[in-house]
């Protein structure tokens, strides 16, 4: 994995976005350093998913700047495609390619985007599938796998591109409770390996144990940023206190 360095990998500056009358991202300033694991939490509708999706331009922004590795996000086209290949994304609903086998899901990007030859791509795919614990499912179709297995394949698919940063958009929200841990374990391993990660999640346990920093969002704004210990034991803002009291009493 890449050497942990202090340089900034992902930088958002004055980012604003509207959905019609709704101001979903308001003056967002956020910097993520290489090797850092940032967990974004907040009530639903706070804009945290939009923030995550804006980083690889699945959502466009109205104003502001986003740079990845010092390069500004280009407009739609080949340039953007190249940049997206460096940004891994894991979705809430897995989004594995339904008409391709598990193995093909992991090799397709390598072969078509990275132009890796098929043999090398398969070798790498099998290694990654083993690493996330679904190596024996390589020849099945996604629909034949459980949700937890599918999400682990999705992580392997993103890792196969050797991304500089991984985005996780509520990766466990669509999972049955007994499958959440198998996915979180994979993510924790990744974090330990030094992967730069931006994780939108409701899993406070993961935030506590794996995050370097917690970003709390509400109503389209970043309300509070702190280390997990600080945030969970001593939140400064009322919104964060209110939010924590609701979810921790469950």
């Amino acid at each position: 994995m890449t050497e942990v360095s202090a340089t900034d990998l992902v930088v958002l500056k004055d980012v604003n976005k509207h959905f019609g009358a709704l101001h979903v991202l308001q003056d967002i300033d956020l910097t993520i350093a290489r090797g850092e694991v940032v967990v974004v939490i907040g009530p639903s509708g706070s804009g945290k998913s939009t923030l995550c999706r804006a980083i690889n331009r699945l959502e466009t922004i109205d104003s502001g700047h986003i740079t990845i590795d010092d390069k500004p996000l280009p407009a739609e086209g080949k340039e953007l495609a190249r940049l997206r290949a460096d940004v891994g994304m894991v979705f809430q609903s897995f989004n594995l390619f339904a008409h391709r086998t598990v193995l093909e899901n992991v090799t397709l990007g390598q072969i078509k985007v990275r132009k890796t030859d098929k043999k090398a791509a398969e070798e790498k795919a099998r290694t990654l599938l083993d690493r996330v614990g679904v190596g024996n499912q390589a020849d099945k179709y996604p629909a034949q796998l459980s949700g937890g297995q599918q999400q682990r394949v999705a992580i392997a698919r993103a890792l196969a591109m050797d991304p500089k940063v991984m985005l996780f958009d509520e990766p466990t929200s669509a999972l049955d409770p007994e499958m959440i841990n198998e996915v979180l374990e994979v993510m924790q391993q990744l974090a330990r390996d030094g992967m730069t990660m931006i994780v939108v999640t409701h899993e406070m346990g993961f935030a506590r144990s794996a995050a370097n920093r917690v970003v709390f969002m509400a109503d389209g704004r970043i309300v509070e940023q702190a280390t997990p210990d600080q945030f969970f034991s001593n939140p400064r803002s009322d919104r964060a206190k209110d939010f924590l009291s609701k979810i921790l009493h469950h």
Partner: peptide
């Protein structure tokens, strides 16, 4: 075809035609 399929493909770095 669900939008997520296209999003997944695009986030892997595939072009529109791919």
């Amino acid at each position: 075809v669900s939008l997520g399929q296209a999003e997944a493909a695009r986030s892997l770095g595939m072009t529109f035609t791919q």
